[in-house]
Amino acid sequence: MTRLFKGLEGLCRLLILAAFLVLSGSVLLQVFARTFLASAPVWTEELTRFCLIYIGALGAGLALRSGDLVNVDLLCESMPGRQPWIMRLLCALLTAGFALVLIPPAWDYTSIGMRQTAPSLGWRMDFIHAAMLVLFVTLALWALMRVYEMLSRRHDGRPIPMSGDE
């Protein structure tokens, strides 16, 4: 299971890098066009927004895993005994529960986009709205992985630094 999650982590990081590179290229094109050309393409702003949406969606689960999401460590870690561990477990369960509950509405939201297109790019919006599915599925997976690791005593539930961040 660990190899599966390492693969998922690598895939998310690769997709975030791709979205960031597209975003960077789009912004550079917009700046170049506004500076040196008579008019700038309007689709670059829309593409930039879509890239930002996917960067956030792909990064949320990784942020949960690495501890980059907002935590209340000050409160948690000041408690005596096993209470910090119980709070971390409860938070992971709640995060997974909320994410799982939000998957069906995210699916509905995505399917609505099939009948819509982006104004300047002309892309079907279900591809863009699918970012919400990605967000909730990856967030649920990372939270459930934390619960599994805690219950199997492989980890204490504290944030795990990403490879290269140690």
Rank of each mutant, 00 (worst) to 15 (best):
M1T: 09
T2C: 11
T2Y: 14
L4M: 13
F5Y: 15
K6P: 09
K6R: 14
G7L: 15
L8D: 04
E9Y: 10
E9S: 08
E9C: 04
E9T: 10
R13D: 01
I16W: 01
A18N: 05
F20E: 00
L21W: 01
L21A: 02
L21I: 03
V22T: 07
L23S: 02
S24T: 02
G25K: 02
S26H: 06
V27R: 01
L28T: 07
L29F: 10
L29S: 03
L29T: 09
V31R: 07
V31K: 06
V31D: 06
A33K: 03
R34I: 02
F36D: 14
F36I: 11
F36E: 13
L37K: 02
A40F: 00
A40K: 00
P41R: 11
W43D: 00
T44M: 06
E45D: 04
E45R: 01
E46W: 04
L47I: 14
C51S: 09
Y54E: 00
A57V: 08
L58R: 12
G59D: 09
G59I: 05
G59P: 05
A60I: 10
G61T: 09
L64Q: 02
G67D: 04
L69E: 07
N71C: 14
N71M: 14
N71I: 13
N71Y: 15
V72N: 08
D73W: 04
L74K: 15
L74P: 11
L75I: 11
L75M: 14
L75Q: 13
C76R: 15
S78H: 12
M79I: 04
G81R: 05
Q83P: 05
P84H: 12
I86V: 15
I86C: 14
M87T: 03
R88M: 05
L89H: 09
L89F: 12
C91G: 13
A92V: 05
A92R: 04
T95A: 08
T95L: 09
A96E: 08
G97I: 00
F98V: 11
A99C: 10
A99N: 10
L102Q: 06
L102G: 04
P105L: 04
D108Q: 13
D108P: 08
Y109P: 02
Y109D: 09
S111T: 14
M114L: 09
Q116C: 04
T117I: 13
A118P: 03
P119W: 00
G122Q: 04
G122L: 10
W123T: 01
W123P: 00
R124M: 01
M125K: 03
D126K: 11
D126S: 01
I128L: 07
I128D: 00
H129N: 07
H129R: 06
H129G: 02
A130D: 02
A130H: 00
A130S: 15
L133N: 06
L133F: 07
L135V: 08
V137T: 14
T138A: 01
T138P: 01
L141I: 09
L141S: 11
L141V: 15
L144C: 08
M145Q: 15
Y148F: 11
L151E: 09
S152I: 07
S152A: 15
H155D: 05
G157V: 13
R158T: 12
P159I: 06
P161F: 04
M162E: 14
D165V: 13
D165F: 07
